[in-house]
Amino acid sequence: MSGIYHPTVASITLRATLGRKRALLFGLPAVILVLVTLAIKAAHPATSGWVSGILGDFGFTVVIPLTALIIGGSVLGAEIDDGAIVHLLATPVRRSTVIMTKFVVASALTMLLAGGSELVSGLIATGGATKLAMGLFVGALAGSVIYNAVFIMISAATTRAIAVGLLYVLVWEGLLANLVGGVRILSIGHYSLGIANAIAHDSSLHAGLSLTTAIVMGAVVTVAALGVAIQRLASFSLRGDAL
């Protein structure tokens, strides 16, 4: 019986995901983050007060979630939309294995692109492998994983995954999590900031959650989202085309 990760599912997912035109967008938020960092660094080479705002707030609530949304949406949502997923599901592979494998692929791609851009930007912004740069990098890796779990759940639950995901990123993470204090406990951006701050110890990061809270809540959200995604895919239905 299949475990939680299936190399063939991963290989098909990776080939299909990178083979879509949408793949050209995967690196766009990451490139924008590096370019913005380069531009600000060039304009203000002596100051570092902007780093947490750009790499922390903008990076964790815009760049990483958008990258995860595009990738997470592609590994599952796009296959559901065009019907290719049926070829994968019409095999004895457990649907929990399909979800977990796609989650691993999406998280790895997001960590590579969004995490990589946070690392490069952090190194440029702080002038080397500083605690702040490393903290932002680790926070970005954690955010990549948690965001992907949520976007894979959204992909499994709705046919409008990109629209729902965008709404979540802009309204919940971008607006409410920064304006309403209580929402932080349910904000992936703030979990990432909490983890980043545990390494960076930098008050300018505006981390509203402790490391323990961030890890526990991040794990709870990840497990719950993947659980819902597995349950949704297990009940994946095809409707008659004429209905």
Partner: peptide, 27 residues
């Protein structure tokens, strides 16, 4: 059971052999 769905969508980035071979591995 083998299933041939109506929709044309397959993993178009794969070759025919890769597609069938992948399915064999999944089985």
């Amino acid at each position: 059971l083998g299933l041939v769905p109506e929709r044309e969508s397959v993993y178009a980035a794969l070759t025919g052999t890769e597609f069938v071979r992948s399915t064999a591995k999944l089985h």
